[in-house]
């Protein structure tokens, strides 16, 4: 089996598991909706359209970040049952394919949530973007991958520690800070139309490339750790 074959096998398995249970996508979607509604209650965005444009990029990403964090731990703890993870550690397949398959699956789940969430968000916050909205189609996947790639890696890392639910945000948030800054700034630039998002998109691309490489290189250490 080639590397790509391993990767696709892992991806297929995760997608099938999710299709049968639909736990994480439903959970994430409802959680993100709740965050959006709670923020709307706190700030009343429809009364102040200019402020809504300025803050809604940040709110959207913060909501997605917290929502995806609820699913990231689940996606690995699923592997703990029946000693599946130990079987993976013994398997001859490359560890990074295991990681990449799971990260891709998580990426697809969060993207699905975004597809539903974005229109709801625009309606609830009465958003009229002033920049080119088509650029969001680049920013959203790049930002999602930045969150989910590192998130999947650190969820695996905190899997066998004490307080794993606590540890994931503690490690993930400081390391994701530049990516969060870039995706929020880029989204705000598109929504307000006041500046160009180009610089932040480049930063996101660089961040994605650097950290995906690092995750793939170091995942072997994390998986085979006892």
């Amino acid at each position: 089996m080639t590397y790509l074959g391993h990767l696709l096998a892992h991806l297929r398995k995760d997608l099938r598991l999710e299709w049968r249970a639909r736990d994480s996508v439903n959970g994430m979607l409802f959680f993100a909706l709740l965050v959006v509604v709670v923020f709307a209650l706190a700030f009343d965005p429809t009364a102040y359209p200019t402020i809504a444009r300025q803050i809604s990029g940040g709110l959207l990403w913060v909501g997605l970040l917290f929502a995806s964090m609820t699913a990231l731990n689940q996606s690995w703890s699923r592997e703990l049952r029946n000693g599946v993870l130990d079987a993976h550690r013994l398997a001859a397949a490359p560890a990074s394919a295991f990681f990449a398959g799971k990260a891709l699956a998580n990426f697809l789940f969060v993207t699905a949530v975004e597809v539903v969430l974005a229109p709801v968000f625009a309606v609830l916050y009465n958003l009229h973007p002033l920049g080119r909205t088509s650029v969001l189609l680049v920013i959203l996947p790049l930002g999602t991958w930045a969150l989910v790639g590192n998130g999947t890696f650190f969820a695996a890392l905190s899997l066998r520690t004490r307080n794993r639910e606590l540890l994931l945000p503690l490690v993930l948030l400081p390391i994701s800070a530049p990516a969060l800054l870039a995706m929020i700034q880029a989204t705000t630039a598109v929504l307000t139309g006041e500046s160009e998002p180009g610089l932040w998109i480049n930063l996101l691309i660089a961040y994605d490339i650097v950290f995906t490489t690092l995750c793939v290189l170091l995942f072997d250490f994390v998986l085979r750790e006892d």
């Binding site: 890392l157 520690t161 400081p174 390391i175 800070a177 950290f211 690092l214 170091l218 994390v222 750790e225």
Partner: peptide, 12 residues
């Protein structure tokens, strides 16, 4: 695990 996080932090 700490060594892995340290490398991430240094790149970050």
């Amino acid at each position: 695990l700490a060594a892995v996080v340290s490398i991430f932090a240094a790149v970050d």
